[in-house]
Structure formats: structure tokens, C-alpha cells
């Protein structure tokens, strides 16, 4: 079981309110991603759930039990830290065994679980090395191994991939998703990278300045962003946000159109502009179109084989049914 409920949970550091009171429910077995820009309070929220910080108000329920005052060890949660936080003078085996040793588990059970975790995480050959002798990805796996063996009711990850290089990050992302599919344990995953959020989450929680902007499945957030912030944050490349007369034309303060929802043509269209930067990725082509008179630059996605380059004239036509309209307060109309 790993049902976690936050009721009116708030956090202040001295005078500064980092997290205004918020409610959140995390179902058993869900993969929940907290996403938001740096400094928005994601780590703080995770640490509140872990019990590493005291709440300034509200209650935290784990499996229906009030865990607000419970010590971190008593909550039955396991955390994977951004710095991995491995114990540097212990071998990989001892690192993984540490939580079981602290729990006073019998040696043979410890050994069984270490072997199982090592096999699952490809660490069998490294069990007797120290963390300092491992690569970043291997350290990450050890940290995950140390979390798995406890068989926690939920896993907490704080930006676990941000210290890895791009290729490794994609690989580890898959491994964590597979782990979730296999264990079916609740996972709460913190990241500032919306791609990680979109690819891994069952449920995304978008945070800004400690407030929850929107909660929903990746596609819900993609299709129906509740406000300008979520619209700009979810999706890659970012949604084009247009203001002024262009938006007024659609009866909105701001309109948003995703790069993939704009048609391109060399002959005719709604907006005319010139290609600034063109990025040919093979599968797709991204153009940053300037001189349209409606925004500094409009990002559009075109076919991978398209034969247009920097300096070429281009016509853009938004798909009107994919247009997002936002009012004065920034909320969706």
C-alpha cells in the first residue's frame, strides 16, 4: 500500500512561505511527477512527505494513518537523492544492506534481497566496489538498489537523473519506468524537466512558487492546460504564446498554439514571416520564424524532409481547433 494524502500542508522557512497550504492525493501504485521551475518548492514538498522537514501546517496521511509527526524511518518511504547520498566508505553491498541492517533483518534474507536487487539493476559485478569507483549511472543504480531492498510503500526521487549525461538519462528514465511497471509501488518523482514528466508520469503535478498549478495526466495537461503557466511549461518545444491584437481577434488576452499545430507553406497562409534559425533533426524540422509582426519569433514544427533554410520566406497557418485561449487572469477560457 502506498496511498499518500496531503491536507492543507504548508511550509515556511522563517518568514518566507515556500509552500502555501495545498491539498494533494496520491493513489496507491501511481507514478506521480512533481514538475516546475527551479526553486518552486518541489524538493521541499518531497522532503515534507519524507519527514526530513517539519510541516508548518496541515496533515500528511500515509495509507490513511496520520504520519505528520512520524520520523522519516517510521513512514516506510525510501528516497533517492539527487547527489545519490551513497555512503562513501562502504562497499556497494554494504550500502544496499544498510537499511536492512538497521532494521535488524536476518543475514540470509539480506543476502537474498541484495542479490535480487543487484541482478535487477545490473550491479552484480560491482558489489564489492566502493561508490567512488563507480560511474554516475552505476551510483544511481546503487541508490535505487538501496531503496528497493527496503520494500517501501512508496519511492521518492529528487531529480535523480540531473547529474547524468543526456544519453544515460534516457536509459535510466526507461529503467525507472520499467521498475515501476514491475514493482507497481507508488513513486513520487521530482524534476524540473518536463520531458521526464511527460514520459514517465501517470499523473503530473505542476508547481509554481509552491502552488499547485494543475494536476492531471500528461495528455490532459498537454491538451487542456489550465493556465498560461502550464501551457508554457508543458510541451517541447514550448507553446507559442501570443498577446495583443492577434489574441483579441480570438476574444482572448493570450492565445497559445503549439509548434506542431501550425501548418507551413511557401505560398500562402495566415501569417507571413522569414525563417531565423532552422533545426533539421531528420525526424522533424523546427523553424524559429521571425518578422511575422505578431511575436518576436514563432516556433513551428515541420516535416523532417522539408527543404527550407535560414532566410527563406514562409507562411504559417494555425489549426484553429488546437488553439488555446486564456483570459486576463491567465486562466483558460
Amino acid at each position: 500500500m502506498g496511498n499518500i494524502t496531503l491536507e492543507n500542508v504548508a511550509k515556511r522557512f522563517g518568514e518566507v512561505e515556500v509552500i502555501p497550504p495545498l491539498d494533494l492525493n496520491i493513489e496507491d501504485g501511481e507514478f506521480v511527477v512533481f514538475v516546475g521551475p527551479s526553486g518552486c518548492g518541489k524538493s521541499t514538498l518531497l522532503r515534507l512527505i519524507a519527514g526530513l522537514e517539519d510541516v508548518s501546517g496541515g496533515r500528511i496521511l500515509i495509507d490513511g494513518q496520520d504520519a505528520t509527526e512520524a520520523s522519516p524511518a517510521k513512514r516506510g518511504l525510501a528516497m533517492v537523492f539527487q547527489s545519490y547520498a551513497l555512503y562513501p566508505h562502504m562497499s556497494v553491498r554494504k550500502n544496499i544492506a544498510f537499511p536492512m541492517k538497521m532494521a535488524g533483518m536476518p543475514e540470509d534474507e539480506q543476502k537474498r534481497r541484495i542479490d535480487a536487487a543487484a541482478t535487477a539493476l545490473n550491479l552484480t559485478d560491482y558489489l564489492d566496489r566502493r561508490p567512488g569507483q563507480l560511474s554516475g549511472g552505476q551510483r544511481q543504480r546503487v541508490a535505487i538498489g538501496r531503496a528497493i531492498v527496503r520494500e517501501p510503500s512508496a519511492f521518492l526521487f529528487d531529480e535523480p537523473l540531473s547529474n547524468l549525461d543526456a544519453a544515460l538519462r534516457v536509459g535510466m528514465r526507461l529503467e525507472i519506468s520499467e521498475l515501476h511497471n514491475r514493482l507497481k509501488t507508488t513513486m513520487i518523482y521530482v524534476t524540473h524537466d518536463q520531458v521526464e514528466a511527460m514520459t514517465m508520469a501517470d499523473k503530473i503535478v505542476v508547481l509554481q512558487a509552491g502552488r499547485i498549478e494543475q494536476v492531471g495526466s500528461p495528455m490532459e495537461l498537454y491538451r487542456n492546460p489550465r493556465n498560461v503557466f502550464v501551457a508554457g511549461f508543458i510541451g517541447s518545444p514550448k507553446m507559442n504564446l501570443l498577446t495583443g491584437p492577434t489574441a483579441a481577434e480570438f476574444g482572448a488576452e493570450t492565445i497559445g498554439i503549439r509548434p506542431e499545430h501550425i501548418g507551413v507553406s511557401t505560398e500562402s497562409g495566415k501569417w507571413k514571416g522569414r525563417i531565423g534559425v532552422s533545426e533539421h533533426l531528420g525526424s522533424d524540422t523546427f523553424f524559429y520564424v521571425e518578422g511575422t509582426g505578431i511575436a518576436d519569433a514563432i516556433t513551428v514544427r515541420a516535416d523532417g524532409e522539408i527543404d527550407l533554410y535560414h532566410g527563406d520566406d514562409i507562411w504559417l497557418t494555425p489549426q484553429e481547433d488546437k488553439l488555446h485561449r486564456f483570459g486576463k487572469d491567465g486562466n483558460r477560457i
Binding site: A50, F81, P99, R146
Partner: peptide, 11 residues
């Protein structure tokens, strides 16, 4: 963070 990890590990 090591200390916190140990705390969560029940030490």
C-alpha cells in the same frame, strides 16, 4: 544528504 539518507534508512 548522506545523513538524511541514513535517517530514512532507519539509522
Amino acid at each position: 544528504e548522506q545523513m538524511e539518507a541514513a535517517e530514512m534508512d532507519g539509522a
